[in-house]
Simulated scan of single mutants.
Amino acid sequence: MNLVSLGGTILAFVVIIVGTILKGSSIDALWNPAAFVIVFVGTAAALLVQTSSETLKRAMVMLPWVYRPPVDEARELVGRIVSWSEVSRRQGLLGLEGGIERETDPFVRKGLQLLVDGTEPDAMRSVLEVEVLTREHSDLDAAKVFENAGAYSPTMGIIGAVMGLMAVMQNLADPSKLGHGIAAAFVATIYGIGLANLLMLPIASRLKSISRGRSQMREMLVEGLVSIAQGDNPRHIESKLQGYLP
């Protein structure tokens, strides 16, 4: 659990609530069903028009990473790569065949299989780097779903505010409804700007950072497997891969 991200999300809601109270308003003033529908459903509708179903599914899969990011296995992976290089020097590349099925990551299994099959280092690098780029592109597109939501929601908030003011203008003959109507109109603006700057844009940035980290780990794996294929010394491989670690 990423307590920093969780604490930031909770703090965002606390800031809005406490700020409303300190300004002399009530918490009830923050709730407006019409504004909620316009901003949240309107933003979702815009995303549905723009985004493919595959990208939306990937975005939903990645969303929990904000609070439960994938385990950072970079240091452990360096150790495994070094052990693979030691096995290959003692038993040859075929000595790694028994460990392929024990790997849970399809990308790792694919790389080891290419290594065991005796694929040329340049060809191996070419095949694996295509997959690295494809996966990174897919993850970044999914992260941009939330970035786009952060771009649309403020506009939807303005639309909600304008629609609220239009309703107020229709009730100018009844002064008792003016104050409440104007306040309700601006709730949509709060929803739109708050959704963008307190949730969607930070989520997008967080997911992009995680995606870049995972791509870097895959690049480290590619470099390690290519080095094994080239017959490099295990200590040299370890020293090279240490450069990928923070």
Rank of each mutant, 00 (worst) to 15 (best):
F186M: 04
S83G: 00
V71K: 15
M217K: 11
S26E: 06
S85M: 03
A143R: 03
L22K: 14
A173E: 12
T55Y: 00
S26K: 09
D117P: 04
T189I: 05
T189M: 08
M1Y: 10
S52V: 06
G92K: 11
K144H: 12
M217P: 01
I27H: 09
F107S: 01
L93A: 11
Q113S: 13
G19H: 10
R58H: 07
V168C: 00
D117I: 13
L245S: 04
I16C: 10
E86P: 03
L6H: 06
E223C: 02
A45N: 09
G224Y: 11
M156I: 14
V87H: 01
M200Q: 11
L241K: 01
A29P: 00
K177P: 08
V18R: 04
A143V: 06
R102E: 15
T55A: 01
I81D: 04
R90A: 14
A143C: 05
E54C: 02
Q91D: 14
N233H: 13
P33I: 10
V145E: 00
E147W: 12
N233P: 04
I193G: 02
L195S: 15
N197P: 03
G42P: 11
V41Q: 07
W31L: 07
S83I: 04
L128K: 03
D139P: 04
H137S: 14
I228L: 02
E101Y: 12
W84M: 13
L77T: 15
L11P: 07
S138H: 10
E147L: 11
A173S: 15
T20H: 09
S215F: 03
S205R: 15
I193W: 09
H180I: 12
F107A: 03
V49R: 08
G243D: 02
L11E: 02
M166L: 15
E147P: 01
V78N: 05
P175R: 04
A59P: 06
Q230M: 13
L48V: 15
I159F: 14
S53H: 12
E101L: 15
V226I: 00
P234S: 09
S209W: 07
V37K: 14
L96V: 12
E131H: 11
I159R: 05
A173F: 01
D232T: 11
L245Q: 00
R218W: 09
V39E: 06
V82F: 06
L198E: 09
R218N: 10
T155N: 14
A167R: 13
A59V: 01
L112S: 05
G99F: 15
L165M: 14
A204W: 05
M62V: 06
V168H: 07
M156F: 15
N233S: 08
L241Q: 01
A123E: 14
D105P: 00
A29Y: 07
P64M: 11
F107G: 00
I228F: 04
I10C: 10
H137M: 06
S5F: 13
G192M: 01
V14H: 11
A161E: 08
E219L: 07
L201Y: 08
E223G: 05
R235W: 10
I210Y: 07
M169R: 10
P202H: 08
I182E: 00
G92M: 04
I81Q: 02
N32H: 04
L198Q: 11
N171F: 07
A12W: 13
I16Q: 05
K110W: 10
K240F: 03
Q50M: 15
V78Q: 08
L172T: 08
S52D: 12
L128S: 00
E238P: 00
